[in-house]
Design a protein around this nucleic acid. Structure first.
Lengths: 154, 154
DNA sequence: GATGAAAGCTGCTGTCC
DNA sequence: GGACAGCAGCTTTCATC
């Protein structure tokens, strides 16, 4: 689907604040309500807008700590991968899991209350998934920038 | 603010789909429209729900590649940090930046079109911010799990 | 004191120009 | 893309348990 400048202006607004009335979105991009609504509907139907979600304040819900976990493993067979994927999916504190190129095989991002909480998740993961030989975790001291918004590719 | 089981049920729903009418949210958590609406309003006013955002499909907007960049630096003075923070803030392809504990000083997450696109961002960053001695980037081959939702702390 | 029903009103949705 | 009309859903008030 082709996206023009106005589409990107709409996407920029909605990526920041999806609670705005369509009329307010239209004003910010120079469109009246109806054509703005039609564009948004088109973007949703095309799947460009995948979903609308509520973002919580990590501190206010008691999960202020972000941990990144780099995993290396000797196991790469499909059965092991299925076990690993199931374990990752079952632990809600794991918010992201990427299969990586390079030295590290998998990179996880977790949201936890504190180090003790992380340790419980860590113990759970290694007990559910065998063969996690090299697991190195690093804690975020400060989230300088955290955004779900992506720019128009230049 | 205290969050009970029903609040967490509401938050679980809204973290998955914030476009749902309040009545539908209420049905899923066993509440009629009015008390459900009051709880959501309370969660918003308390800042537990920080915002509502549209999440785009990275593939459909031409940014299918996720890159993690680990940075080590010898510079830690406030002036350097201000320059670094400004550079990070100014580059929209950088979606996250964390100041880390341990060996790595900063961890960045980027959304880019391809390796060439990443290289342009990389060049821009090191030209704007001096003293980035050790910059190692790793590409995500597959996003096995990506979520903005966090669980009720156990 | 919190819930559920019911009314008013804002803003979403579709048609026509 | 813009104007207008119909209507669904949000927001408030009031009675109830």
């Amino acid at each position: 689907m082709e996206l023009d400048s106005i589409d990107w202006a709409i996407l920029a607004v909605l990526q920041e604040n999806a609670a705005l009335p369509i009329q307010a979105v239209g004003e910010r991009v120079g469109l009246s309500t109806n054509p703005c609504w039609r564009r948004i509907k088109r973007l949703e139907e095309a799947g460009v807008i995948a979903r609308r979600v509520a973002v919580l304040d990590p501190t206010k819900v008691g999960l202020p700590t972000t941990v990144f976990v780099a995993i290396r493993t000797a196991r790469h067979d499909p059965e092991w991968l299925a076990t690993f994927a199931a374990g990752v999916a079952a632990i809600p504190e794991i918010t992201e899991c990427h299969r990586m190129a390079g030295e590290v095989d998998y990179l996880l991002k977790l949201s936890v209350r504190d180090i003790a909480h992380y340790d419980r998740i860590y113990q759970r993961l290694i007990s559910e998934v065998p063969g996690l030989n090299d697991v190195s975790s690093t804690f975020s001291m400060e989230a300088m920038k955290v955004s779900t918004a992506v720019p128009r590719p230049s």
